[in-house]
Amino acid sequence: MTQTTDTSVETVTALYDAFARGDVATVIGALDENVEWYEAEGNPWHPGRAFVGPQQVVEGVLARIAEDFEDFRVEPHKFISNGETVAVEARYRATSHRATGKPLDAQVAHVWDVRDGKVVRFQQYVDTRQLADVMGVAVI
């Protein structure tokens, strides 16, 4: 059975709420075993391919957030739904990047594909120039 639009938005909203509480287990539990997680091209963490499966998402993204940023948070403010796909306008904020000391306040959009209560695909769009500047890496 495929989820309705409202249920997909509820699933995604619950993920942002869990992340805000620091409940990474709930976030990981909502990922399909074959989830494809795409960081924005130009993001210093973008490996040139999707992270596939929850373990790669943890190692390639979630653990790095905790390691690299002080008080990192995602502040969603608009959800747009089209069936199984939910787009979210948000901001990334952090008190500072641990290596540079620079604060983060970047515009971001996320596109989530949800099937049967599980995230099967995620695509990040972010101000990669600002992210690279905060992280102290060169922009090519």
Rank of each mutant, 00 (worst) to 15 (best):
R121L: 06
S81P: 14
V12H: 01
K102C: 02
R115D: 11
W112R: 00
A132T: 10
A132F: 03
V61K: 01
K118Y: 08
P47F: 09
A87Y: 13
D23A: 01
V119I: 15
A94W: 09
K78Y: 05
V134D: 03
T95M: 08
G117A: 03
P47L: 02
M135V: 01
T95L: 12
Q3C: 10
E75D: 14
N43I: 02
Y16P: 02
K78I: 10
V58H: 00
V74F: 09
E89T: 09
E67V: 00
E33Y: 11
P76T: 02
V27P: 03
D6W: 08
A30Q: 07
D113F: 08
V134F: 13
E70I: 10
E39G: 06
R129I: 13
E89M: 13
V88A: 08
V57C: 06
Q56E: 15
V52R: 07
V120H: 04
R73N: 00
H110G: 09
I28S: 08
Y38E: 13
Q123C: 14
D68W: 05
E84W: 09
T11H: 05
D133N: 10
Q3F: 14
R49F: 03
P76W: 05
G53H: 04
D105W: 00
M1S: 02
Y16N: 04
D32A: 06
T13H: 07
P44Y: 05
Q123W: 15
R91K: 11
R21P: 00
V12T: 06
A109N: 12
G22S: 09
F19C: 03
L131S: 11
T4E: 11
K102I: 01
T2S: 13
R115Q: 10
V58D: 07
E59G: 11
V9K: 08
A50Y: 05
V119C: 01
T85A: 08
V120C: 09
A25N: 04
H110T: 09
H77S: 13
Q124Y: 01
E33F: 05
W112C: 02
D127F: 04
V134Q: 11
G136K: 06
E39I: 00
V108I: 15
G42S: 07
V74K: 04
G48M: 01
R73C: 09
G83W: 14
Y92R: 03
H110C: 05
Q130G: 06
N43W: 10
G117S: 03
Y38D: 14
D105N: 15
T4K: 02
L131M: 14
Y38M: 14
N34G: 14
N43H: 15
Q56W: 01
A40G: 04
E41S: 13
V120L: 10
Q123G: 10
F122M: 04
H97M: 04
A40Q: 12
G48S: 10
D133W: 15
R49P: 07
Y125A: 10
Q55F: 02
I28F: 01
G53N: 06
A106M: 09
E70A: 02
F79V: 01
I28W: 03
G53R: 00
E39C: 07
R121M: 12
V120I: 15
